[in-house]
């Protein structure tokens, strides 16, 4: 095993241990389960009220909400992963030893995935319990959704890590994440609003602005990890294999690009406590 992989493995182990003994992971899992509990409850109410409910994969909808919560946790956790260590000075100490920028970024990324998997295991255990208690049952699409969610978590983590590599303070990272998330959601709403307008109703200048905005949003579609999350959810809901694979590959490519960017940003910004 190369020295770099030894470093990556050791850091993952440390980080995983830290997550395991911390409360964040369990709070995120609980939130994910709690949110999905509302969906399960609505199913029960529907069946009780209508005496019948027809659904292809009833666990997918609650899973989607659980994945949104877990992926947001991953984004927040990764967006503070480097800035927290920079803030505390521990990142600098790591670099005294046989650790380089790539190994730190990869280790943090894989640890995020490990944490996400732990959350998914806890969520799945809860789903198993609920599925047995209510007799809702499992379908293979649940497995597909979980597999896809790992790729989505990857894109979320790489995005968070990139933000984290840019900043040296936990507060700045979180603020930046909230700002970007808010901005992306705002643009998404604007886009949806624009789609309802017809060129005939607009002045020439508005049409021009719409055109620019539309192109910006097209780029954002590929630049925002949240669009992979939403597209992934749609892919499983639609049962579209091509969309599923396309989204998986897209999220994977996005992850690679963002991780590379994170390595260079970390080199540029440095690892020292300010």
């Amino acid at each position: 095993m190369s020295y770099r992989w030894v470093a990556i493995k050791s850091i993952i182990k440390r980080e995983a241990r830290s997550s395991f003994f911390g409360l964040g992971l369990y709070i995120a899992s609980t939130l994910a389960c709690f949110v999905s509990a509302f969906i399960f409850n609505s199913y029960i109410n529907t069946v009780e009220g209508n005496n019948i409910m027809v659904m292809a994969s009833p666990l997918n909808m609650p899973l989607f909400y659980a994945v949104i919560v877990s992926a947001l946790y991953t984004a927040i956790s990764s967006s503070t992963a480097l800035s927290r260590e920079k803030d505390k000075g521990t990142l600098e100490v790591l670099f005294y030893g046989p650790v380089d920028h790539l190994s730190v970024i990869l280790a943090k990324f894989f640890e995020d995935i490990v944490s996400f998997l732990i959350i998914m295991v806890l969520v799945t255990l809860y789903f198993v319990y609920t599925a047995i208690v209510t007799n809702l049952g499992f379908s293979i699409s649940y497995l597909y959704a979980v597999i896809l969610s790992i790729f989505i978590a990857g894109s979320m983590s790489s995005f968070g890590l990139w933000l984290s590599s840019l900043t040296a303070r936990i507060r700045t990272s979180v603020l930046l994440l909230i700002l970007i998330m808010g901005g992306l959601l705002g643009l998404q709403f604007l886009h949806n609003y624009i789609l309802t307008l017809k060129p005939e109703n607009l002045s020439l200048s508005m049409v021009y602005i719409m055109g620019i905005l539309s192109n910006v949003l097209r780029i954002i579609r590929w630049a925002s990890p949240f669009s992979y999350l939403m597209n992934g959810i749609n892919a499983v809901a639609l049962g579209s294999t091509s969309m599923y694979i396309e989204n998986m590959l897209g999220a994977f490519a996005y992850t690679i690009v963002l991780l590379t960017l994170s390595v260079y940003t970390l080199k540029w910004k440095g690892v020292r406590k300010l």
């Binding site: 190369s2 020295y3 770099r4 470093a7 440390r14 241990r17 830290s18 003994f21 911390g22 505390k88 000075g89 521990t90 600098e92 100490v93 005294y96 030893g97 046989p98 650790v99 380089d100 406590k273």
Partner: peptide, 25 residues
């Protein structure tokens, strides 16, 4: 890089330890 770093030991003015770990860990 890794070969050389493995032959060096570094102590800084402030240690910046992972405070959630035990000394052994």
């Amino acid at each position: 890089y890794f070969g050389i770093k493995r032959r060096i030991g570094v102590v800084s003015e402030v240690q910046y330890l992972y405070e959630d770990m035990t000394a052994y860990e």
